[in-house]
Design a protein around this nucleic acid. Sequence first.
DNA 1: CCGGGTAATTAGACTTTATCCAACTCTTGA
DNA 2: TCAAGAGTTGGATAAAGTCTAATTACCCGG
Lengths: 131, 131
Amino acid sequence: MSNAISFLKDKGIQPTAQRIAIAEALLGNTQHPTADDILAEAQKRCAIVSRATVYNTLNLFVEKGMLRTQLLKEGTVVFDPNLQKHHHFIDEEDGTIIDIPWNWLTVQGRQKLEDYDIDEYQVILRGRRKR
Amino acid sequence: MSNAISFLKDKGIQPTAQRIAIAEALLGNTQHPTADDILAEAQKRCAIVSRATVYNTLNLFVEKGMLRTQLLKEGTVVFDPNLQKHHHFIDEEDGTIIDIPWNWLTVQGRQKLEDYDIDEYQVILRGRRKR
DNA sequence: CCGGGTAATTAGACTTTATCCAACTCTTGA
DNA sequence: TCAAGAGTTGGATAAAGTCTAATTACCCGG
């Protein structure tokens, strides 16, 4: 049984052809895909996936905690299949988004925010990769 | 001479009625306004401001370094007139965005990102304000 | 003060991202 | 087998933002 099918069944999601294609597109290559990226990739695997289904399915995956959305790109949400806590680096030359391991950075001083209940936080860095 | 007019002249921007209204809307109340917030506010001050002019002007202000854009709200860019380095806290109950002073938080470990030239960074925190 | 050229503004068309909806199809279980 | 519920679909719709062609305002030299 394919990876994607068990991935869906584990979460109690009926594994339809479209959902499998979308799950495979996610498990596959792109690091921080947009809904359109996923649509293109899923259509390579399963000729009949509509835009509406991609949005339905991605939102379903987010509800089920299999994905998170991130505000890292102008004009569109990106989906992040990395469920571990991590930070993000954005290459301003080409827009590439790179995960930075959680333990690379430490944020000190959070106790100063005594008036706030912090659910989560991350560092967002911008610049360019050295080549 | 109004605050807004000198604010514009300092940057070599011709102070038209519309630009003054937009600058005043910015200097005014809203903390992290969207283009639509600014449009509404500017129209209170100057009945004849079009959507196109608001976008033209805000983009001009960003080019001139009088404003920065931030990706903090889904579906729209917000404009940030606070030019000091700072972090952001987002209240997930109502979406309010709150500036966190730069020196409240310290990010350690940046030297680990040796493969990256970091132009800027900030901590983005999410949660809710205590009441 | 006048006229002409440039700068600024405008309404509306257009593009992109995302959601909504009603119709259709597929699956499942009795 | 077949009805009910689940899933999918294209197209309509909505919102953010850009573009364009036409109009309006402004500035400056004569």
